[in-house]
Write a protein that binds this DNA or RNA. Structure first.
Lengths: 232, 232
DNA sequence: CGATTAATTGACAAAACTCAATACGAGTGG
DNA sequence: CCACTCGTATTGAGTTTTGTCAATTAATCG
């Protein structure tokens, strides 16, 4: 029984107990000073819209608990997920006037929300904060660029391997990874179909590289093999 | 006869006449204040390394003339090009200590180079500059995220269409696009093989959507059709 | 418990890749 | 100026990978 499966629609109900990792609130408002400027927080239900494509950029966000997908839809319904955000991650700050991606809660999530204007003004006034916000954006950029290599040049097995290792690192898993997202999200993140993702999962399990203890709970049995696969 | 084909090996020879677009030097040092802080410039020959993957981040760069590819190589030789940079573009400023991509001149190019440390200190001290540098990074991020949709969710024809429209816009082409890069670079940017890129070019030409007046010179005959194809 | 959604599995089709051959273009030397 | 070479691009034939469609199983939730 994966806890966050239990509460699906209850709006604004504090997730109980949600994706909160064993780190202090100070760490969740990540080591930095910037997030402490963001004091209003809101709860979003599973699949709740945080902002959507084409909407005006009004706020900046930071994940307190839960998980967020950052995605873009094509006219014919094809969807690309550009990133996943987890507790401590900061998102939604863009230089353009309108969002080019939308953000949705994957599970019940608590999100800190701050007015963009006030945030930018405050942040840019302070040299350390300005550097920090830039550096955060640069890190997002680097992550995006790395993901381009996955999408452009890796086969299905390598993509899934890279995904699992990334989730393992980012979700602070102990022993097993509790994936908050459904197969469709994984597929849309990796540029594959759900069927292919599913087949690769089964295939990796057959090769004893992973074990699927629950559909959403994965154990990495052979990290070396995964590393080999995802090697860039 | 595409001019930049004529000078291939002469190192540090000023390109004559290279990819310089009809805008003033002030514009090339883009409207902003930041680039004016970068006053040393260097000429790189075709295929010259500007910096490479795993190298320390020492400088920041801006293209004066020519064209640059920003790429990452996998152990087995597969390569992903993350971006192309053209006159006025700013690149190489990263938050990490080491580059995760390398940058090479595609044709003889003149590049402004500035020490990273000095640059960051100066820039972060000034509020307007700090905002500008952040906003530039955010724009790169947005471009990368958009490209992820291309790599993850578009078929070969759609990728090439999107590429041509992008080059058309960025190279300030009048009538026809002079592509500075070979087919291999296009393939590695779009996550395809050179054969597929070549076939799609021929195919688009047969459909009268483009005309290939020279291997590297493309005329867009039907932008509407290209837009339709690349629509996201 | 039954309805509904999510995930898996299989058979087949399609898109893109691989390998190989050929054509083209630019530069070189006779 | 022409033949020759070398790198780049195109084209074709056949294979591979992944996608599509359909059926089945599993999980979730009222």
């Amino acid at each position: 029984m994966l806890h966050w499966k239990t509460d699906t629609i209850a709006p604004r109900a504090p997730p109980f107990p949600p994706l909160i990792h064993p780190r202090s609130v100070a760490e969740v408002s990540p080591g930095f000073g910037i997030v402490s400027l963001m004091n209003a927080s809101r709860d979003f239900p599973t699949n709740g819209d945080i902002f959507s494509q084409y909407e005006e950029v009004n706020n900046v966000y930071s994940v307190v608990s839960g998980a967020v997908r950052f995605s873009r839809m094509m006219k014919d319904g094809r969807r690309q997920i550009g990133a996943f955000y987890f507790p401590g991650d900061f998102f939604g700050l863009e230089s353009e006037e309108r969002h080019s991606f939308s953000a949705e809660a994957i599970v019940n999530s608590r999100i800190r929300v701050t007015k963009r204007g006030a945030f930018l003004k405050t942040v840019m006034g302070d040299q350390a904060c300005a550097h920090e916000i830039w550096s955060e954006t640069a890190a997002h950029l680097q992550r995006a660029q790395r993901h381009m290599s996955v999408l452009g040049r890796k086969n299905a097995r390598e993509r899934v391997a890279a995904f699992l290792l990334d989730m393992d690192a980012r979700l602070h898993s102990q022993g097993s990874i509790d994936l908050p997202m459904p197969r469709r999200d994984i597929a849309d993140y990796l540029g594959l179909t759900i069927e292919t993702v599913s087949r690769i999962f089964t295939n990796l399990a057959k090769s004893k590289i992973i074990a699927i203890s629950d559909v959403r709970r994965i154990v990495l049995c052979n990290r070396a093999a995964l590393g080999q696969l995802s090697e860039s």
